[in-house]
């Protein structure tokens, strides 16, 4: 079972590396942030598998933290990055 989990970790890591290519290529900021979200999701999967395979129970807590904060980062990107108005402090609207 442990071997299977480890191979699964390897597979997800390979997918993470592909996601990394998307960060490097872009071309837009939104593409890069979406790739970061993919890496966050893959990272959570890796942590859960790794925590089970290597019996590190705390890996689940790290995965929980990562799940909450990766969501938060993407929201912040939408609010701060895409909306030009948010940057100058006069007004802020949801991106339409």
């Amino acid at each position: 079972m442990t071997e299977f989990l480890t191979v699964a970790v390897g597979f997800i890591l390979a997918m993470l590396a592909l996601g990394l290519l998307s960060i490097l290529r872009g071309p837009g900021d939104a593409d890069r942030v979406m790739a970061t979200q993919l890496i966050g999701t893959g990272g959570i999967a890796t942590l859960l598998l790794l925590g089970t395979a290597a019996s590190i129970p705390a890996a689940i807590d790290v995965a929980l933290t990562l799940a909450l904060l990766a969501t938060f980062t993407s929201i912040a990107f939408v609010k701060k990055g895409l909306s030009r108005f948010a940057a100058d402090g006069t007004a802020s609207t949801e991106d339409e």
Partner: peptide, 10 residues
């Protein structure tokens, strides 16, 4: 900055 966020996750 986006790269740095992904870096932190990894």
């Amino acid at each position: 900055t986006v790269g740095f966020v992904a870096y932190g996750l990894l």
